[in-house]
Simulated assay, not measured.
Amino acid sequence: MVNYVNVHAYHLSFKDQAFRNILNRSDIVFCDGFGVKLGAKMLGLRLGERMTPPDWIDELFAMCENEKVSIYFLGDEDYVVKRFTEMVGEKFPNLRIAGYNNGFFSKSSDENNRVINDINASGAEILITGMGMPLQEKWAFEHREQLRPKVVIGAGALFRWYAKIEKRGPRIVTDNGFEWLWRLFVQPKKVWKRYIIELPYFFMVVLKYKFTGK
């Protein structure tokens, strides 16, 4: 299980013990946010580079294409995941795309079993989920014993960004810690709570821990 943490993830984990446990039990958790890097630095901790899926996913696809590793895509709306799959297939024509499915299926009915069976029957070795946090992490963790892919990667809004349905900021913005400002500017209704409420709260928690150890 490969998951990521950004300030939003930490904010959710403060309130959701189950989600926090899933992150702590994941095999790999990578940093997906400059806020997390800054928070770690304030506590005297050293993290590796920020790794957001849109920046490295093509490297994974190229490696899988070369090594004949098959991938299944699960998440977002039908037209989004379909367009994403088409674009990946055009860019990596020899990549083994085992299948895809939207993320808006019932998680507590026979439809859930159908999706799991489809993933397993596809022979996919890697499953990439884009159902949003914390749904994608909780779903993958709950069904980890049933799913046959060897690796499950949570990727958030990757499908939407890759398919250019939502536009990311220019690299000079995203590579220098200001992607949050760009998203607040272009998607204020969607992300305002993350950056107006969650970001200051995160740093309050970091400072409290720094000076009190709690």
Rank of each mutant, 00 (worst) to 15 (best):
V2D: 14
H8K: 02
A9Y: 01
Y10V: 04
L12P: 06
F19W: 02
I22C: 09
L23I: 10
R25D: 15
G33C: 14
G35F: 08
G44I: 07
R46P: 02
G48M: 05
E59L: 06
A62V: 10
I71V: 13
G75M: 12
F84N: 04
M87R: 07
V88D: 05
V88R: 00
N94I: 12
L95W: 02
R96D: 12
N101R: 15
G103T: 06
S108Y: 09
S109L: 00
D110E: 13
V115I: 10
V115K: 04
I116W: 04
G123P: 04
A124R: 01
T129G: 07
T129M: 09
L135P: 01
W139E: 06
A140V: 00
Q146K: 15
L147K: 13
P149H: 00
V152G: 00
L158D: 03
F159S: 02
K164T: 03
K167S: 09
I172Y: 11
V173M: 02
V173P: 02
E179G: 02
E179Q: 07
R183L: 10
V186P: 03
Q187K: 15
K189G: 13
K189N: 14
Y195G: 05
P200Q: 09
Y201N: 11
F202T: 05
M204C: 13
V205M: 10
V206C: 06
K210A: 10
T212E: 07
T212S: 09
K214S: 12
K214P: 02
